[in-house]
Design a protein around this nucleic acid. Structure first.
Lengths: 200, 200
DNA sequence: CCGATACGACACGTGAGCGTATCGAAACAA
DNA sequence: TTGTTTCGATACGCTCACGTGTCGTATCGG
């Protein structure tokens, strides 16, 4: 909805879809390199090989454009097998890792953490379309696991959700030049689920 | 070391320590409000009520100034009682929470996450003077706990360190408008140490 | 008092990005 | 072909920060 209405086409030269793609790609590239504050319409136009007019004709401004670019960043939500809590959480972690496979995407996520709060429209859309569905996915998996007796029921769901997701996200955030191996994801998850104290 | 050498004082008007303090405070304020990219010498001078000359006389440039400002951000390292792993880790978590008590400091930390990598000198100093000592403190506590049999010894120390610190740091990073209660810190820590599966 | 240095204030020219406007050419519908 | 719309390019006036230099004033040592 941030894009300017594409009114019913009647006549004249149609808008180039190549330009659309080039603009979005250039936006993500610049976000990764220079952060939100360092990304400008002029820079995007130059990198995309496009006139500024072409951008202003499609988006209201920088924030709208970044909103749209952001949406192309996130992959599809994983479908959970439901076989076990471990399987579900591993699927979620792997989906997160997959959307951070390219160095560019990792850097874009990193710059969002600190800068997003200064761009309210962007922040709201990010929370609603990216964070919230994934959060709900995790909470659902945890709820089902509690019902099946796979999880303690004496801890707040919010606290458990934090414990389960934080190590993976924290690792990925602070290792922007690496991709976590499947082994690492499993080690983190198993450590979290089983606990760090020796079983008596 | 980033500060311009304060040569042997001989005569003339001495530099104002009030100006020093005002400059550092203004720098941290602006970092919190606008991030690194949005912080300028002009802005700092204006907010501190100081001439630009006064800043350029003391620091080589913006990055040097931010380096010095950053050092005033971190409180002292906590001393660990060594009584138990839980006590030690709780002390570490509380020290981290304490240095994030003010909303301003929380926002400064948040902006560092995404932007720091674009400022190599700043990044190196931050890792060396802030992150490394705290990391070593945690690893030491974990090592001693393994020796005492308080911890599993089948997990990589790196992985355990990640699991132990991530939930607290992740929570604080994504709740920049709150301070974690002692109860929350304990819940997170106890969940991590005890694990999320029910004890058989 | 005198020389030295720091103080805040202000001005300089430079460069970047803003959002808008205008250009001739290109790509479509009728 | 004609009319319409988009294309990339370029230029506009505006604002902001850069780093430097220069004011007159304030504060120190000797």
């Amino acid at each position: 909805m941030t894009e300017i209405a594409r009114v019913e086409r009647r006549s004249g030269r149609p808008r180039s879809e190549d330009a659309d793609r080039a603009i979005i790609e250039a936006t993500l590239d610049l976000l990764a390199e220079s952060g939100i504050a360092g990304t400008s319409i002029e820079g995007i136009a130059a990198r995309a090989g496009v006139g500024k007019t072409t951008i202003y004709r499609r988006w209201r401004g920088l924030e709208s454009l970044i909103c749209d670019a952001m949406l192309t960043l996130k992959g599809p939500l994983p479908t959970l097998s439901g076989a076990s809590l471990r399987d579900d959480l591993l699927s979620i972690a792997e989906a997160a890792a997959r959307s951070r496979e390219s160095a560019r995407n990792r850097k874009v996520y990193a710059c969002f953490v600190g800068e997003m709060s200064r761009y309210p429209a962007l922040d709201a859309q990010y929370r609603e379309t990216v964070i919230a569905p994934r959060r709900e996915l995790t909470r659902g998996a945890l709820r089902r696991a509690i019902e099946r007796g796979e999880l303690r029921d004496d801890l707040d769901l919010e606290v458990m959700s934090e414990i389960v997701t934080a190590p993976t996200l924290h690792w990925m955030l602070h290792h922007p030049d690496q991709t976590p191996s499947r082994e690492l994801l499993e080690q983190l998850l198993d450590g979290v689920l089983g606990g760090l104290r020796p079983r008596a």
